[in-house]
C-alpha cells in the first residue's frame, strides 16, 4: 500500500546540502507492523514526515494506496492526512485548552462531520483506549500515559489506514509505555498498518519488520520469520 521509489529529501544547511533521504526504495504492505530505527540524523524522522505527507520529497515518488502523492497540493495532502493517516507524537501534542473529548473530536471537526456522529465516534474511541471516565478532563489533569492514549484515540477516530508513531513511548515511564505499545499493537491486529519510529531497540524488535537507516539510506531491512 505504501511504495517509495528513488525517494530523496535534501536540506540546505548553510552552503552544505544534507541528504536526509538518499534514493530510498521501500514497499510496505497493508496491515504490516514496521519499525524504523537509526541514530539521530539518520533520516528516520524525515522518512516518517514524508510518509505522513507533512513533508515532500525533493525527488522520487511516494505512492500511497495506488495514488502518487508527489504532485499533490497542500489541500489535497491535508485531505489524505485527514482520512488515511493517523499520527502519534512523542510529546502527545494535545491542545491544552480542550478536554480529552474535544481533542479527540478535533479531526472530525476539521472535516465537518456533524456533532451527533462525532459524539458517537469519540465515545467509542474513548472506550477503545480505556478513558471513558476521563472524557471531560483537560490534558493537564491527565498522566502522560493517559495523554498518549487520548492522542491515540484522536489518531484513529477518522479510521485511517496507516498509523504513524514518532517515538510514542519516548516521554513515558516503562509501565505506561508498555500500555501504549500494547494498545497500538492491538490496533495493528485489528487491521491498521503501523509504522513506528524509535531508537529503542527492544521496542523495534517487537515489530514484524525492522528497517534501519543510516545517512539517509536503508542499511538493514529484516522481517521476522
Amino acid at each position: 500500500m505504501i511504495r517509495l521509489e528513488k525517494l530523496s529529501r535534501k536540506f540546505h544547511v548553510g552552503n552544505q546540502v544534507v541528504h536526509a533521504l538518499d534514493e530510498v526504495d521501500l514497499e510496505i504492505n497493508p496491515n504490516d507492523y514496521v519499525s524504523i530505527m537509526g541514530v539521530s540524523g539518520s533520516g528516520k524522522s524525515t522518512l516518517l514526515n514524508i510518509l505522513g505527507l507533512l513533508d515532500t520529497p525533493t525527488s522520487g515518488d511516494y505512492i500511497l494506496s495506488g495514488i502518487n502523492t508527489s504532485k499533490m497540493d497542500d489541500d489535497e495532502m491535508a485531505g489524505i492526512r485527514s482520512t488515511k493517516i493517523g499520527f502519534i507524537f512523542q510529546s502527545f501534542h494535545l491542545i491544552p485548552r480542550l478536554t480529552a473529548f474535544e481533542n479527540i473530536e478535533m479531526p472530525m471537526i476539521l472535516s465537518g462531520i456533524n456533532p451527533n456522529e462525532r459524539s458517537m465516534k469519540v465515545n467509542s474511541a474513548l472506550e477503545k483506549v480505556g478513558l471513558t471516565d476521563r472524557s471531560d478532563h483537560k490534558p493537564e489533569q491527565l498522566s502522560g500515559g493517559q495523554r498518549q492514549r487520548v492522542a491515540i484515540a484522536r489518531s484513529i477516530v477518522m479510521e485511517p489506514d496507516v498509523l504513524l508513531a514518532d517515538e510514542p513511548t519516548g516521554n513515558l515511564d516503562t509501565t505506561s509505555g508498555n500500555e501504549v505499545v500494547k494498545l497500538i499493537e492491538e490496533l495493528n491486529l485489528a487491521g491498521l498498518t503501523l509504522i513506528v519510529v524509535t531508537h529503542d531497540r527492544e521496542m523495534g524488535e517487537r515489530s514484524n519488520r525492522l528497517i534501519e537507516l543510516r545517512d539517509g539510506k536503508i542499511i538493514n531491512d529484516q522481517r521476522k520469520s
Binding site: 505522513g52 491535508a78 485531505g79 492526512r81 501534542h93 491542545i95 478535533m106 479531526p107 476539521l110
Partner: peptide, 13 residues
C-alpha cells in the same frame, strides 16, 4: 505546535 498538530490531523491552510 498546535498549528502543526492541526495540519497533521488534516487541517487545510
Amino acid at each position: 505546535a498546535e498549528i502543526g498538530l492541526l495540519k497533521a490531523i488534516g487541517a487545510k491552510n
